[in-house]
Design a protein around this nucleic acid. Sequence first.
DNA 1: GTCTATAAATTGATAGAC
DNA 2: GTCTATCAATTTATAGAC
Lengths: 193, 193
Amino acid sequence: MRAEARKPYDIESLTNVAVRVFAERGYDGASMDDVARAAGITKASIYHHVTGKEALLGRGLRRALDALSAILEEPGSNRGRAGARLEHVVRRVAEVTFDLLPELSVLFRIRGNSPTELEALAHRRRFDRTVASLVRQAQNEGSVRSDIDPGVATRLIFGMSNSTVEWFRADGRSSPGELADAICKVALGGLKI
Amino acid sequence: MRAEARKPYDIESLTNVAVRVFAERGYDGASMDDVARAAGITKASIYHHVTGKEALLGRGLRRALDALSAILEEPGSNRGRAGARLEHVVRRVAEVTFDLLPELSVLFRIRGNSPTELEALAHRRRFDRTVASLVRQAQNEGSVRSDIDPGVATRLIFGMSNSTVEWFRADGRSSPGELADAICKVALGGLKI
DNA sequence: GTCTATAAATTGATAGAC
DNA sequence: GTCTATCAATTTATAGAC
C-alpha cells in the first residue's frame, strides 16, 4: 500500500468522508480529528471547506432528507391505488437507504441535540405524516388491515426498514435488491405462512 | 414547585437517572454534567457512587441484556412448536422493551466505541443468533415463510420492535399491551389484508 | 487547499472539606 | 452522600504561513 497522490478535497468529497465517520462512530462520538484522520488531512484543513462540525452534519442530513422527499414526488407514489402506492414508497425508501447508507444512518440516529438536528427531525416527521396518510387511504380502500393505527403502522414499517442501516453491508452476501424484497415481503405480508 | 427533601442517591437510583439522560441525548451526547443536573446533584457527587461515565453505561446495558436473556429462559420460549415459541419471544421482547425503555434505548444505539460497548454488542449478537435459530426451526416446521434468510428475518423483526424506543411514550394514548399486539400482528401477519 | 501552532471551551475525573 | 475547587485531557475552532 504505497502513498498515493490524492485529488484535493472539495466540500462534497469531504462531506462523503464525514458522513461515513459519523455513521460509524455516531455524530457525537466522532471528533473532527476522526474526520480529518479518515480524510487524510489535518483538522484545520476541514475548516477551509465548512464552517464547522455541525455544518458537515447538516450537509449529510440534507442529502438524506432530499432523497426521501424525492420519493414522494415519484409517479409511483402518486398514481394508482393507495395500497400499490404504499408498496412503492416502502420499496423505494429501502433502495434509497442502501444508496445513501451513511447519510440515512446518520439521519435515523439523531436525537435533536442541536438546531440542525431539530430541523431535520421536523422534516422527517413531515415525511412520516405523508406516509401515514397513505396508510390510512390504503386502510379505507381495504388493502391494509384497519386494526392498527396508521401512525403506528408507519413507524413500525420504517422501524424495520431503517434498522437495516445498523447491519447491512454491501458485501455481496445479500444484494440491496434482495433485501428490499425481504423488507416488502415482511412489512406487507408478514413472516407467517 | 417547591424545593423538596430528596432521598440520597444510591447506585441504583443514580443509574435510573443516568440511563434516562443517555436515552434522551445519546450516550456520547450526554455529559456527566447533564446527568448531574438531571439528578439534582453535582458532577463530583456521581463519582462517589460509580467509577465513571462508562460504568454508568455498563450498568444500564447490563440491565437491558439481563432482561433479554431472561426471556430466552422462560417456558414459553422453550416449550411447544417453534412458531409459537417465536411469537412468545417477539411479544416478550416488546413487553420488556416498554418495561425498561431507557435501558433498551441505550442498548439499541451503542456503536462499539469502547470495551463496554463491544462486550454488550457481543451479548446482543448471542441473543440474535438464538432467535435466528428459532426462526430457522419455525421455517423447517412450516410455520414461517422460507424465502427469507433466518438472520435477515430476525434482524427485520427486532428492527421493527426495537425502533419503538425512538417514539413510544407511555402517555396513555396507546398502551404497551396494544403496541406489543400491533408489533406481533405486523411482524407475523404483515400489513396487508 | 493544506499545514503548524494555538486559543477557548467543554468534559471526565480527583482532592479534600463538611 | 454531597459539596467547592481544580486538574488534565479532549475537542471545536481560529490565525497565519506556504
